[in-house]
Design a binder for these strands. Structure first.
Lengths: 342, 342
DNA sequence: TTGTAAGCGTTATCAC
DNA sequence: GTGATAACGCTTACAA
């Protein structure tokens, strides 16, 4: 079986010969450069079509000193999140010459110190960094040092003038509390997220701010540590429901944990939302699969990825930088929240 | 802000000069070619390390006429599935010079006829095709025509001598029926999968074979068409539960539909597994998130992707082809199945 | 075991 | 507007 393509592909020279022009003119046409007479242009395009010519990527990269490859680095374990991320980036890249290389890491420490090597080994033109990787100081410093253009998604750490796209986690968490208080809840528990993700802190802050805004005191007994996983949510739910004066509503810092809380309630014979309201965060696929459907914050992951990619492209192509961008969130009210039990 | 790397990267010539050898020797070292004295080798490696030399990907691709890029094409909407696929492929690629380009398609028709263009535009050395794309005749024919090496994951259509890795869907569905019959069930409903996925047919066949093996007659009323989505499973579940002589067990052809069936049961006040047993297929993340946890067939997607990638690499690198490979499945018994109600 | 020379197929420079 | 011609950094023959 043939290992390489059976046919010898035609090159820029073949097209130039066929069109009766120089290779430079063909190059101009394929790079949308000015100074080509429309007639010449058409002749080149026709010759190229006849010869089924496609520019050689490697040659372009070598001569142009750019690969048209961008990397998407992440260490998030949630498939929903990852796929949304990829979709957003690919959405922006569609129709461009750029291609996407996915770079998943097991954890931030696996990425630290290897970014530059990976970028060079893969020949990347730029990189999009998703949380929590984009908050890893070592990773950012390394990228900064080697001068590779990059953009960050929902970063919470500063110290970088690279473009980034974010959502206001704090404000969103406040909106969650507003919603619950509006339903009459006053004992609102919270399952905190993995502290290594900076989002966890912002969401907790918003929770506190929301309580304060309504004149409610924060009760440390109602705050349980989670880890952004289903199981940690389940355990946190059990702990909260076992409380003597248990909460009537629980705000889980992400959907996976909210699903865990609902399972804990199911097991404990506590009906959701009649006896307990549960709110998630992210609006991942899970939110629509658990029963009842999750009231949650829709985090525009896909949009953020698209915009971050866009920012990266303008950084690479035009050296223009749109430093910060804040995308709107949305509270999606579904079946898991209801009025406080009488 | 600098658009390109600030520093001028060192090249093979720099390393050759520093080590006092020719560039060919440096090339030999970096390509693990024979006929390099260990001492020379060490000298080259030292010089390379001192100069922080990394071979230029584009130059290697151009001169070597290979990109070390392989594509992973799929059109599956399930994030869990997609991420498993990617993980498997990346697992095999780890430590190799190859990089992975993800190629998601909205549907098979979007892929048909564009494969060759994509492969050339991206400069791919080969392609891994996931179902149901790998069963699209036009796509396969196109790849075959342009001579691009490819491997298929769980294909069900023939007409290709490309390597593939599969699981025995039919046998697995039989095992599901065995399990249910073993629990005493005789009225076993089925939610069929999307007929455009060939797996749907194989799973249905296995269901029928299982019934026959136990001397049970197939009842058309117990067979409802689904579409591999949560909602279609939900609707199918409602239909089956509304039957006058409703089934005591339902085999959904994938996990998403099984989750839908469970929701339908929940709504209808039918307890799972006490009054109804539900089985899924795939063992996707959803299987562990719904309540009760799903009894399902663990489909080794990740392993299949890894092995398919492996087969592709040997096809590209050694022109060796390991045509077919069958990976074992596993019936994972969780909480959604139980003895037939008395 | 090592080196020389000739590409690989583009883009960049600069002249016309 | 268009075209020579020189890079780009490496691999592949083929010599030595």
């Amino acid at each position: 079986m043939a290992r390489r393509q059976a046919t010898r592909h035609s090159t820029i020279t073949d097209v130039a010969d066929a069109a009766g022009v120089s290779i430079k003119t063909v190059s101009r046409v394929f790079n949308d450069e000015p100074n080509v007479r429309p007639l010449t242009r058409d002749r080149v395009l026709k010759a190229a079509a006849d010869l089924d010519y496609h520019p050689n990527v490697a040659a372009r990269s070598l001569a142009g000193r750019r690969s048209f490859l961008i990397g998407l680095a992440y260490e998030n374990p949630s498939p929903n999140y990852v796929v949304d991320l990829q979709r957003g980036a690919l959405e922006r890249l569609h129709g461009e010459r750029y291609r996407l290389l996915v770079l998943p890491f097991d954890d931030a420490s696996a990425a630290s110190g290897k970014m530059q090597a990976i970028a060079r080994a893969s020949g990347l033109d730029g990189m999009v960094l998703a949380p929590p990787l984009c908050d890893d100081p070592a990773t950012v410093a390394e990228l900064e040092a080697c001068g590779l253009p990059y953009a960050r998604i929902a970063p919470t750490s500063g110290g970088s003038h690279a473009p980034d796209v974010a959502m206001d986690d704090r404000e969103a968490a406040r909106a969650v509390v507003d919603h619950l208080v509006g339903l009459g809840h006053t004992r609102i528990g919270v399952v905190r997220g993995d502290p290594s993700h900076a989002s966890a802190g912002a969401r907790l802050e918003g929770y506190h701010a929301g309580l304060a805004a309504h004149g409610l005191a924060a009760d440390p007994a109602l705050e349980v540590q989670g880890a952004y996983t289903f199981v940690s949510g389940y355990e946190a739910g059990r702990a909260l429901l076992a409380l003597p004066d248990r909460p009537t509503a629980i705000f889980a810092s992400n959907d996976d944990m909210a699903a865990g809380v609902i399972n804990a309630a199911y097991e404990a014979g506590v009906s959701v939302p009649d006896q307990l309201s549960v709110v998630g965060f992210d609006d991942s696929n899970i939110a629509s699969v658990v029963w009842p459907r999750l009231t949650t914050i829709h985090q525009p992951i896909r949009d953020m990825a698209r915009e971050a990619t866009s920012a990266l492209l303008s950084l690479i192509d035009h050296e223009e930088t749109v430093p910060h961008q804040m995308l709107p969130f949305q509270l999606v009210i579904r079946g898991s929240t209801g009025p406080v039990p009488a």
